[in-house]
Design a protein around this nucleic acid. Structure first.
Ligand code: MN
Ligand code: MN
Ligand code: ZN
Ligand code: ZN
Lengths: 138, 138
DNA sequence: TTCTATCTTTGTATTCATTACATTTTAATT
DNA sequence: AATTAAAATGTAATGAATACAAAGATAGAA
């Protein structure tokens, strides 16, 4: 279980003022590496922060992404998903249950940007899809 | 300019009955390889098909994707985008203008599925993002 | 401490892509 | 023509994301 102190440190490293709400969201992301949606984060924090507003969760994640502390994934057509792990790795989404899983240990060449004169690339997202074992009943 | 005949043929190859509306959508996709949104397709066809319903465009693309005639891209967080080219290629989205461009000629290894016991992978999507030359003013 | 300016949070209202569903139209078959 | 199934249409509902204004918290100056 990572502590609020580590969240504070990480937030300050990214020049984000660690308010109570921001710290709670960061704690959640550090302890729940499930690529949660805004709604999942909001619902999880609500019981302990009854006055939390969903707008705050949106604002908070916007600033996290802006400062490079968190990555926003575009893999689920329904909702944005957020990943505290900003290192190079790929994802798998199960078309049945919708869960998003990490795929590590792929060749680093996969994450290199092609040299193209027409575009300035500054990010890559590699997304696999299919069905997970749990949904396939095994 | 590809003809309606080619659309008919392509639709039949995918066991899709070529109605007037389906043929019009397929024609549009074949002649406009810009990864259009539902709304772009609908608005483009409306002038010549005043009774066209947006629901029909949704239904039509759902069946196209289901039958493997068209690929749905999850790259733009605002809208689904549709690609008549189902061959292995990557995409670039400009964070400024939102246009989606093809990236061909990448190593074929990039599109291979990793062998993982936990998931049955049946698709991969490689998405780059950044800023296009036009938006960078050059 | 008090005042002030700024930052942050909150609640509400709105937008808009997508889905649900019932009705109408079209096409194919007898 | 009558029957049936497939396809298209229109309307309503859903729900994620955004806009915005008001309230609250924070930190520094006086
Ligand atoms: Mn991840
Ligand atoms: Mn393409
Ligand atoms: Zn699953
Ligand atoms: Zn651009």
């Amino acid at each position: 279980m990572l502590t609020t102190l580590e969240s504070h440190k990480y937030l300050r490293q990214h020049s984000i003022k660690p308010s109570v709400q921001r710290t709670a969201v960061m704690d959640y992301l550090m302890n729940n590496r499930t690529h949660p949606t805004i709604d999942e984060i909001y619902l999880a924090l609500c019981p302990n922060m009854p006055t939390l507003s969903k707008t705050t969760v949106y604002n908070t994640l916007d600033i996290f992404v802006e400062r490079g502390a968190v990555r926003a994934l575009v893999i689920d057509e329904k909702n944005a998903r957020y990943d505290i792990d900003v290192s190079a790795h790929a994802h798998f989404i199960c078309r049945s249950c919708g869960k998003v899983h990490d795929i590590f240990n792929l060749k680093s060449e996969l994450f290199e940007f092609p040299k193209l004169s027409r575009f300035s690339i500054n990010a890559v997202e590699i997304s696999y899809s299919g069905i997970c074992d749990k949904c396939k009943g095994n």
